[in-house]
């Protein structure tokens, strides 16, 4: 059976993020949205409240202390991350009971406390014990 190269398909995408969220990341802060009507909090941030149906939201800062719920050490890196060393991705529960994904710095352990910040681009959880 003869194998030949088919015409490659290159997909390029443009996507949007809320300005407020990206600006806050640059300052080391993590923002979520909160519904002014019913108080529901959304992370990832939503501009529409699907709990009460209103779309009147405000930005709130999430608590910067949390706990590692689980994690993995990425050894085989995907496209876009090939130049990175091994990195640890964790799921963190914040003190104010929100759940988010972050890169973990320090010795990862389920149940370890982390301080949440950013590297200007993504959320970081620094292990503090």
């Amino acid at each position: 059976m003869m194998q030949i190269d088919a015409i490659p398909l290159e997909l390029k995408y443009r996507i949007k993020y809320p300005d407020e969220f990206i600006q806050a990341l640059k300052k080391g802060e993590i923002l979520a949205t909160k519904c002014k009507n019913c108080g529901a909090v959304y992370f990832p941030p939503q501009r529409d409240c699907t709990n009460c149906g209103k779309s009147d939201m405000e930005w709130i800062k999430l608590d910067n202390e949390g706990e590692i719920m689980t994690y993995s050490i990425v050894v085989q890196k995907p496209q876009g991350f090939e130049d990175k060393g091994n990195y640890v991705i964790g799921i963190v529960k914040t003190k104010d009971n929100n759940f988010l994904m972050a890169w973990i710095i320090g010795e990862p352990k389920v149940g370890a406390k982390v301080r949440l910040t950013t590297d200007g681009y993504r959320l970081i959880g620094e292990v503090i014990g």
């Binding site: 689980t70 993995s72 994904m101």
Partner: peptide, 26 residues
Amino acid sequence: NYQWEYHFYGTTFPTYYAFYATRHMA
């Protein structure tokens, strides 16, 4: 969720299952 996961954190498909394995072990 590409926008809030892969884009920032470089998740792979095995990583997602690894989260479950790590927690189940702990």
